[in-house]
């Protein structure tokens, strides 16, 4: 689920926060509104670890991120192999900063399908802007139990052709309104990605999933695991941090 994937570290590290509510007889739209209202904080700052596993073994990247509202996120990689590389997501665009490059790289169009650091996450997964309900038509498909937790099974169908995923299915915890699993499909119905979320904890008054495992169904022996090491919500974050001048600093 695309919006689900735009939590604490852009879309890279998900944060599904939730407030317990009485959830009887909710419509699909209401469920998604509650899910989404719990995903976006005023500001946040986090450190995270990304482990990419493929046929050659596994490699670990670490990163630090700052977010403000729904659309603005800055990620800076701190692991030795990528130290100093930054990704800035603004409302409509993604900019990459590499210390060895003399210019910023602006990604748009088909370029957004590039993999981020060879992981199972594409930059397209990080694009923000519209809400889930603006991007997708939703339908409640029933209830299922995921890892011992009762979940709403909600189907998402893109309203526009340029959505990152034409169809998605998301399992949303009926009590916490946090996603526990999602599947992304191509227009043809072919499974593209699977995401599992766990280690759900309440931090600073928000309930979040601290770990997410993404599998690209089109690649063999490939998965990406994100773990949220530390997170702070509603802290002071300077607007300048998200400027292009600051990005190449």
């Amino acid at each position: 689920m695309k919006r689900t994937a735009t939590g604490i570290i852009g879309v890279v590290i998900f944060a599904w926060t939730a407030l317990p509510v009485a959830a009887a007889d909710l419509t699909a739209e209401e469920i998604v509104e509650r899910l989404e209202s719990n995903q976006v904080q005023e500001t946040n700052h986090a450190t995270a670890t990304m482990v990419v596993r493929d046929r050659f073994g596994e490699r670990t990247s670490t990163m630090e991120s700052w977010s403000k509202g729904r659309d603005v996120t800055l990620i800076e990689f701190t692991s030795p192999a990528e130290r100093g590389q930054k990704v800035l997501r603004t409302e409509n665009e993604i900019y990459l900063f590499y210390p060895d490059a003399a210019e910023l790289i602006r990604l748009q169009g088909a370029a957004l399908r590039e993999s981020m650091l060879g992981s199972d996450i594409s930059y397209e997964d990080m694009t923000g802007g519209k809400t889930l309900l603006e991007t997708y038509r939703v339908e409640l498909l029933g209830e299922e139990t995921i890892h011992g937790h009762r979940c709403y099974k909600v189907g998402f169908e893109a309203r526009r052709r340029n959505a990152a995923y034409p169809r998605q299915t998301v399992w949303i915890d009926t009590e916490l309104f946090v996603a526990r699993r999602s599947e992304q499909y191509a227009l043809s119905g072919r499974l593209l990605k699977e995401i599992e979320m766990d280690r759900i904890e309440t931090i600073g008054g928000y309930t979040i999933a601290r770990r997410m495992i993404i599998s690209d169904a089109l690649k063999r022996n490939s998965s990406t695991e994100f773990t949220l090491d530390d997170v702070q919500f509603d802290i002071q974050v300077d607007d300048d941090l998200f400027s292009l001048e600051e990005l190449s600093w």
Binding site: V52, D54, F56, R59, S61, A81, E82, Q85, L96, Y98, D100, A101, A102, E103, I105, E114, M116, L117, G118
Partner: peptide, 18 residues
Amino acid sequence: DRFTLVTRTAMRGSNAMS
């Protein structure tokens, strides 16, 4: 003139150079 290339690295991450 100049151009900036993005590529995968031997550490299977990415890097760019102008």
